[in-house]
Design a binder for these strands. Structure first.
Lengths: 238, 238
DNA sequence: CAGTGGTCTAGACCACATC
DNA sequence: ATGTGGTCTAGACCACTGG
């Protein structure tokens, strides 16, 4: 009920009040206490609960909205946002994917090296191939940290690709991306239906929730069929 | 003098007051009226000049600081920020570069196609090679729009690479990046000292100031020697 | 010390969307 | 009609830091 949600927001005395409010609500969202769609108490309620002025509460909520964690509308109020839709499959007519390999357990030394894992850690290791319009689209090799996402152990990913599934069933607060160009290894080339050594775009992404590692993935896009486009303002900012 | 700078900030009646102030100052910076290092009038002066409350002025300045256009420090005040340093040459011991080709004038049809230029437009077309630690580092092909940056016609780029020069001598408000992996063309491969067909990372960037095109560049990084790393928060935001 | 920005309050009016 | 967020004011106190 709403009273529970109001009580859940707390000040910890560290730093400015607006930032204490922002962090408190952010943690409730990233910690899963407030899943997407949960309605956030209105400003006047938070104001009374916390003994802060409305401008201060407003400031915290505006910042959370700018970070994409909540969406706000007049009259209908503030709700926890849903993660963004994963695929921009605008041009794709047919989409299919299959799990090529899966192994759960402790990582082998070379796997640990490739994904920066600790030795004893329990992980799920998946290799999946995504097809679009009947052509290989991307080869995905992924590690899921089972200590952070235990539910992944019971999921076979037969219907939902691991990336989509993780968006639904886990939370993340930070990610690191690396982009490079690599020649296709013979095995990978065969799967992607290209010549060995052909130029591929490799995107490596690692995500964490707070300090806990969630997943690490290597996405290999064949040839120069793919372009990734971004728009920016001056000095790299929006 | 300070009085001039204060008079230059104006309200246009469109939208919230804080946004009018923000856009007015932003335009003074991006238009070159306030070059980097210019001191921005303090909040109380803007407040009196514009008849706005301090919170409203503050809000505009905070947003400009978040966008990286100004830097603010207590006591010493607010100044227009300098563009970020161009190279992260932390690991690079020796850096060198040379201009391989240059041609000014109207673009050929295929050049117009490659860089998305209009036919009659006057441009400078440059090919330069950058070396780091005595190895080819990146091959740069660039077009500079002389209508937007006329001073580029008189610059030979013998000492300063065009990217650095443009940061000093032009302004931009928006950029579009595209990243892809491509095999090296034979000519490019020879210049980069790699085998033809080897995987290269291609970064294409086009920049504008307001609506005017400034420059377009294709940066070809050899092999998989390079990685581009970025960190992000949830949902792509900071 | 004094000037600057950083934060905060207790109000107020308005715009907007749903009820 | 009413509840919600969006904006704005006129003050206030504080933190920091350069003269």
């Amino acid at each position: 009920m709403a009273h529970d949600r109001l009580d859940a927001v707390k000040l910890d005395g560290a730093g400015p009040i607006y930032d204490q409010i922002r962090r408190s609500i952010r943690d409730l969202i990233l910690g899963g206490t407030w899943p997407p769609g949960t309605s956030v108490p209105p400003e006047h309620a938070l104001m009374e609960q916390l003994g802060a002025s409305r401008m201060t509460v407003h400031r915290a909520l505006v910042q959370l909205a700018r970070e994409g964690l909540i969406t706000r509308r007049r009259r209908s109020g503030t709700v926890v946002a849903s993660p963004p839709t994963t695929h921009a499959m605008l041009d794709i007519q047919r989409y299919a994917y299959e799990v090529l390999a899966r192994h759960d357990g402790r990582p082998s030394p070379e796997l640990a090296l490739r994904f920066g894992l600790k030795r004893g850690e329990k992980i799920a290791h998946l290799v999946t191939l995504h097809r679009a319009d009947d052509r290989p689209h991307v080869l995905e090799e992924r590690v899921i940290h089972l200590a952070t996402v235990p539910a992944a152990a019971a999921e076979d990913f037969a219907r939902t690709p691991p990336g989509d599934w993780l968006l639904q069933h886990s939370l993340w607060s930070q990610a690191e991306h690396a982009i490079s160009a690599v020649p296709a290894e013979p095995d990978d080339a065969a799967l992607l239906d290209i010549a060995a050594g052909e130029a591929c775009l490799l995107i490596e992404r690692r995500t964490w929730n707070q300090a806990a590692p969630v997943t690490a993935v290597r996405l290999l896009y064949p040839g120069n069929r793919h372009r990734f486009v971004g728009r920016f303002g001056p000095y790299g900012a929006v």
